[in-house]
């Protein structure tokens, strides 16, 4: 009788075959059981990150607020941590000033770009322009900072005599440029989601394209547009390098964009690059400022999500 051999040259019989099969199935079963657990553990890293952020900010901030009272921190209008004055308003003011300048630049330009791309441009033009606009979003912020300091500021100085090298205007304009693609592309998505039947109804009544845009498309896409603006503003608030490089390091409670200001983010960079020793007041103040920044951006992101879910028009 010919012997049946398995591929290792061993004699093959039904008994061992069954054994092998069972063993394989058991290891298979173990893998099937372990894999989901492993994947879940990896998925929980993102949860841990959030907890880590909140824990870090809370713990070190509490350390800070045991020395400086919350009221003093949030109502004080003088920020000079190296002489022990911790009133955060100048930093918040600096951040807001730059954000306002950025929004003034980015909201009209971004919205008009979105209208052009979504309503006026034909497919070919859109396919060329859109990716180029997205490149703007991919430029590292340190490059924007360089651009603001060495190019935009000198140009502004020739228009505004007496403008300092570091000023909120130049930083704000460039932050605005950075967030244009965000507003443009998210708003365009919102406008694209408006069904054509609505536009055609308006055309049927004799509207021009502009009238269709203003009276039909914009109202229908309103929630998406507002959400895109809120998201972009929140990005501007958290922007660090442009502001650090171009706006200077002068905590300054002012609404005059030609002055030098320090934003919350810029202070964190300044304190972290200077010799701040672990456990000092300034070290803890980093986290109190970081916490303020985190809450501000988180609230804005939540508002954006709420708007785009709650007020979404379904067609």
């Amino acid at each position: 009788m010919d012997q049946l051999l398995n591929n290792e040259g061993k004699e093959l019989n039904v008994q061992t075959l069954i054994e092998d099969k069972r063993k394989n199935r058991m290891t298979g079963n173990i893998i099937e059981k372990i894999i989901p657990v492993f994947l879940f553990l990896c998925a929980s890293v993102s949860i841990l990150t959030t907890f880590g952020i909140v824990f870090t900010l809370l713990r070190e901030s509490i350390g800070f607020f045991s020395d400086t009272s919350l009221v003093e921190f949030y109502t004080g209008s003088s920020w000079s941590p190296w002489s022990g004055e911790f009133g955060v308003l100048p930093l918040i003011g600096g951040t807001l000033l730059i954000t306002v300048v950025a929004a003034v630049v980015a909201v009209p330009i971004g919205l008009m770009s979105a209208i052009f791309l979504s309503e006026y441009a034909d497919d070919r033009v859109r396919r060329v322009i859109k990716p180029i606009l997205e490149v703007l979003a991919g430029i590292p912020t340190v490059v924007y900072g360089y651009f603001a300091l060495t190019f935009v500021t000198p140009i502004l100085q020739s228009f505004i005599p007496g403008l300092g090298i570091f000023n909120a205007l130049s930083a704000g304009i460039v932050v605005g440029v950075m967030i244009i693609p965000m507003i443009a592309s998210l708003s365009e998505d919102a406008m694209n989601a408006v069904p054509n039947s609505l536009r055609e109804g308006a055309y049927g009544l004799g509207s021009t394209k502009l009238e269709v845009v203003i009276k039909v498309v914009l109202p229908a896409a309103f929630s998406g547009i507002v959400a895109s603006i809120v998201l972009a503003v929140s990005r501007a608030i958290g922007e660090t390098m442009i502001v650090t490089i171009a706006a200077g390091a002068t905590p300054n409670l002012t609404m005059d964009p030609t002055e030098s200001v320090q934003s919350m983010t810029a202070f964190i960079v300044q304190a972290a690059t200077g010799d701040t020793s672990f456990g000092s007041d300034i070290y803890y103040s980093l986290y109190a400022v970081g916490m303020t920044l985190f809450i501000l951006t988180l609230v804005m992101n939540l508002i954006a999500q709420y708007i785009s879910h709650r007020f979404r028009e379904e067609y």
Binding site: S46, T50, L231, G238, T240, G290, L293, T297, L298
Partner: peptide, 8 residues
């Protein structure tokens, strides 16, 4: 998390 500023 995607919206948390990088400096945080």
């Amino acid at each position: 998390l995607a919206g948390v500023p990088s400096i945080v």
